[in-house]
Design a protein around this nucleic acid. Sequence first.
RNA 1: GCCCCCAUCGUCUAGUGGCCUAGGAUAUCAGGUUCUCAUCCUGGAGACAGGGGUUCGACUCCCCUUGGGGGUACCA
Length: 484
Amino acid sequence: MSPIKTRFAPSPTGHLHVGGARTALFNFLLARRTGGKFLLRIEDTDRERHVEDAVPKIIDDLRWLGLEWDEGIAVGGPAGPYRQSERLNIYKGYVRALLDAGKAYYAFETSEELDALRKQAEAEKRSFRYPRPERLPGAGDAERAAAQGRPLVVRLLNPGRDVTIRDDAFGEVTVPATEQDDFILAKADGFPTYHLANVVDDALMGITYIMRGQEFLGQTWRHVLIREALGFPEPGYCHLPLIMDMQGRKLSKRDGDVDVHSFRRHGYLPEALVNFIALLGWRPTGDREKLTLDELIAEFGVDRLGKSNAKFDRDKLLAFNTDAAAAASEDRLLAGFRDYLSLNDTPVPSGDEAMLRLLLRINAGFRTFADIVTKCGVLFAADDAFEYDAKAVEKVLRKGDGAGFAVLADLRPRLAEVDWTPQAIQTLLDGYCQSSGLGMGKVAQPIRVAVTGSTISPPIYDTLTILGREKTLARIDRCIGRFK
RNA sequence: GCCCCCAUCGUCUAGUGGCCUAGGAUAUCAGGUUCUCAUCCUGGAGACAGGGGUUCGACUCCCCUUGGGGGUACCA
């Protein structure tokens, strides 16, 4: 397999979303798989949509996922700069060359005029195509138009032939000449269009393989035409089926909660997200579906890509995360948990490594880091800073003539004296069960409700150990005083 | 409207003419383990969109219908 050079070329409109993450992942995998290079380029030719903070966010998201690039923004390389807004002169040169070669021409219509033509075409039930003028405007016409304050754009002189794209996922796709027109290469604001900049950069940066979302498949004919007009070598093409939301709508960047960063902040592990999105539109051989990044690199190939769109199923992602957490080493989890805590405001003491490790251990089986905090946060809150769940108090403490309160009253003095270790507390409670004839459920639950306000917490011995004797007794007293 | 693409359990998918009484995962349902929750274990239910062909034989090949998606920008 010869080395392939791929790129991920996002437009900086915000955080990386899962669709972009998958495109980046597949490009990364293919480059690694073939011993090639993976490049990161920023396509910011739209000044309207540009979001200032987006580039560092995207960089951060990609690194969190573990998708390191060999060349491009933030790491440099021989073909920079890697931000299109810093390459305007390069594009201008190519547009000039196309103009000089008679392969492109000027046009002066305003957006309003174009819209009117479009509406007219629609009314006549024709599909709109830019009407090429009988006589192509030259430099003199351009000057005159500019002097009149008209917008000045450059359009490609379409050679007018069918274009066939050989796509490694979808096969051969032909766009007939009748469906094409003289599209814009250079906008009135002096910026190139996406199409022009994209093709020029891919060629200049030595990209040999283009893998991107299927939304570009129907536009690839434009890229083919530009590339041929400029005499650039032909790259391989591969379009990816789209990722949809559960309603079947296209996953949108406006959906903030499908951002990679949002999953990070909600306590997901990057390896789980990577593994999960790798399976959207691609499948490894066999029934196996849990793969590490390295295994993905070893397995990846465009031959196992699908063609139909995939829906983003959060439930399955959650299950993947649960499994990934269970499979991760404690050190790995510690790093992830710290990252999670640094991104969220929680009562958990993030600086206490021993405590963090303990929380990780006693919460084994957790689904996301967020679960640990919801379950254990109350242990770090002030004694009067949490609420009692009314139903829990009723069911566990009051029910059966206040049986739960009786247990608390029995245990209160013993807890005041026992050694404060999980083992000692367990021995105490086991002994109490024996002598009282009660099951552990009847003993642990009243304590749990008294000290946490709810029926949910880590194992009772661990819960009490973390809480400490003083807080445990104070909370029991407060609970009895308030509800009995 | 026009152009293009797609079509197996709710979801992600395996399946490349006979290995399919259609497999796995997830979700779901029913049990089980457990001091609660989560985890974990066992079992169940659940799909080839419809109609025509081709073939000795179609989930697999062809056509039509239907459904879904994308494109049709001086957005990427």
